[in-house]
Computed example of a mutant assay.
Amino acid sequence: MTHNSLHTKRFISLDLARGMMLLLVALAHASLYAGSTLLSRPESMHSMDTILNYISVFVVDNRARPMFAFLFGYGLTLIVASYLKRNRTIRDAKMSLYRRALYLMIFGFFLSVIVGGQDILAIYGAALLCITWLIFKSDKVLKRAIAIISALFVVILPVMWGSMAVMLQEENALQLTYTSYSENLSSQFMQFITGGPFLGNLALPIVVSLLLGIWAGRKKLLNEQPDHKPLLKKVAIIGITVSILGAIPQALYSNGIIELGPLFSGLIFSLHMITGIIGGVSYAAIFGLIGPKLIQKELFVRPITALGKRSLTFFMLNEALLVVFLSTYTLNLGETFGLTVSWSIAFGIWLLALLIATILEKKQLNGPMDHLFRKLVHRKPREEKQGIA
């Protein structure tokens, strides 16, 4: 989510995708404050809520997160390439990634436990700790790992979510928000120290999207090269189709059109999640296609790409503001006014982020959290330190 310099060559497709991704993530998390759970949508207060519930299932839920992870994986290949271009060793690159993983978990701890926001940073950090070694393996090993891990999740997810739905039958919910700050603090702290970020990677197939992003980064699929357009078009068309078809059962169930037992509700949620990986990748492909065409339209593009360059800062800011406006222990606008208001607030927060990011871009300043993260992660090689000494 962070980058080496504001002045190095960047790809507009990546920054555009990251900027739009922040909107999708904000909308997904706003739904949780409106009464959504991982297995169901919030109750509609009026027809607009119903429309947004369907839009969310087809476009946002379990699709924003895979896109996020895919872009994260893609960025890792750029980081490694940057290290090697500067004649740094593979060991230096590996240690940089391990530090990145560690500090993602620390930043995630701060966001989820102290701030009380919906976090995915720590889960990404845990995933990166587990797969860093694969980044330096051959394409053959990487593709084999993707195939094996994907096959495992096809088995794990239905079993896990089906079992979870059965266990939650009496409560009929999987609550992700809390009634007080102290309750959130204690619960999130216990989840974290008992391995929550690592267990989260079993319930959410982050690793698959991450590895797909690494593979795409090796092939430079989003580097705005014309010869990649045919493949990106195929991925976009097939991916969107699969994503929509895979969302239909979840849309019907979560909006109360059909009734299913808890076991089947867990199974169709798994289908929604698995097809969402393909959907998230297709979103990235779409931005890979449209990014180069938007270069001339700076008035429209610059604010979003400025936001994408500072995605860590504004992800954390957006989540903190969602807590302030929507959480049950603050202003509680989410459950009080429902999904339409919650999404409107999330969209307003994203617009505010666009404004601030544009100002930072004009002043050629990084986001403060991006700057801190980069300062913590990057280390000078031992030889340079000795030379300075």
Rank of each mutant, 00 (worst) to 15 (best):
F70L: 15
R63D: 05
V57G: 08
F72E: 08
F58E: 02
F58H: 02
K85W: 00
F70A: 13
A64D: 14
N62V: 07
A69W: 04
L84G: 10
S56Y: 09
V57C: 13
Y54L: 13
N62L: 11
F72W: 11
V57K: 09
I79G: 05
F72Q: 10
R86H: 03
P66C: 08
V57R: 11
L78N: 03
R65A: 14
A69D: 08
L84A: 13
Y74E: 03
F58Y: 06
V59Y: 02
L84I: 15
N87C: 06
A81Y: 00
V59L: 11
K85V: 05
L84M: 15
L84D: 12
K85Y: 02
S82F: 04
R63I: 09
V60N: 07
A69C: 12
F68T: 05
L71Q: 03
V59N: 00
G75V: 15
F70R: 07
S56C: 09
A81Q: 03
A64W: 06
N87H: 04
L76Q: 12
L84H: 08
I55Q: 01
Y54K: 02
D61L: 02
R86C: 06
T77F: 13
F72V: 08
L76N: 12
Y74K: 02
A64L: 07
N62M: 12
R65C: 08
F70G: 10
N62K: 06
M67I: 03
T77M: 15
L76E: 12
L78D: 07
P66L: 10
D61T: 03
K85G: 10
L78R: 04
L71R: 02
T77D: 07
G75P: 14
V57D: 14
D61N: 06
P66D: 10
L78P: 01
L71N: 08
P66W: 03
R86Y: 00
P66Q: 08
Y83Q: 13
V59G: 01
F58V: 04
I79A: 12
V59F: 07
R86A: 12
I55M: 09
D61P: 01
V57I: 12
F70E: 13
V59H: 00
F70M: 14
A81F: 01
A69I: 07
A64S: 13
Y83M: 13
N87V: 05
T77S: 12
N87Y: 01
I55G: 06
L78S: 11
F58T: 02
V80T: 15
F58L: 11
V80E: 13
K85H: 07
Y54P: 06
V60G: 03
Y83I: 07
I55W: 05
Y74L: 15
Y83P: 05
G73W: 11
S56N: 12
L78T: 09
L78Q: 09
L76V: 15
L76R: 05
S56L: 04
V60K: 01
I79P: 01
D61I: 05
A81G: 03
F68R: 08
G73K: 06
V59T: 04
R65W: 10
F68Y: 15
N87R: 10
